[in-house]
Amino acid sequence: MAEGSGTRRHRALLSVVELGGYPNFESLYRQYGFEPLVVNSVRKAQSTLRREQPAVVVAEFNVDPNFRDRTGNLESLLAGIQHLPDTRVIVFYEREHLPHLERLRQRFPIAEALPYPVQAAALEAALQRLTGKRS
């Protein structure tokens, strides 16, 4: 239903969970008015981006030394998101990969970056900054 018609419109949040190892944050996403769409690969995320224009994408930054021309799959995803100027990106990362992430941030807009172990309170604070509201 369209916004302004009396029913609150759900905004999509695309969660890309390739490796996981952190809590399921779907209920937190819903608290902020998002309808979570969960995929388990960047390839599936890219396919989803062709059909949806999520308000937020939450993705893992997994450095892969086997890639010669980029640091990992996140780079491909961020390139696709560039065509969605209203989509904000939250990245989960390993602290030792921060230098690689900072290089990515010079090329792509990343709204928030949260180190592992990802704490619900840190993610909630990031969602508050992105949405301008409290749960």
Rank of each mutant, 00 (worst) to 15 (best):
G6R: 00
T7S: 15
A121L: 05
Y32F: 06
A113R: 08
Y29D: 14
N24I: 15
E75A: 05
Q119S: 01
E102C: 06
L127S: 13
R88Q: 07
R50E: 09
R95S: 10
V42K: 04
P117S: 01
P117Y: 02
N66F: 02
V42C: 02
V63C: 13
A45Q: 02
A79E: 15
P65M: 03
A55I: 03
L123K: 11
A120T: 09
V16L: 04
A113G: 12
R95I: 07
G4L: 00
P54D: 06
F25C: 10
I90A: 05
R30I: 09
S76G: 14
Q119N: 04
L49M: 07
S41V: 08
R103S: 05
Q31H: 05
T71E: 12
R9D: 12
A125Q: 04
L101H: 03
P54F: 01
A120V: 12
L19P: 04
L114H: 01
N24E: 14
N40E: 05
H97T: 15
A2F: 10
P23I: 03
E52G: 02
V42R: 05
R103L: 01
E75R: 04
E60T: 04
L74Q: 11
Y116S: 11
S135D: 12
Q128C: 14
S76I: 07
S47T: 10
I90S: 12
Q128H: 15
F108D: 15
E52Y: 04
E35C: 11
G21M: 06
T71F: 11
R70M: 05
L19Y: 14
V58M: 03
F67V: 04
P65F: 02
S27R: 13
D64W: 04
S15E: 12
I110A: 07
E124N: 05
V63W: 12
Y93T: 08
A12R: 02
R105H: 09
R30W: 00
N62R: 12
Q53A: 14
A55N: 05
R129S: 03
R51T: 08
L78K: 00
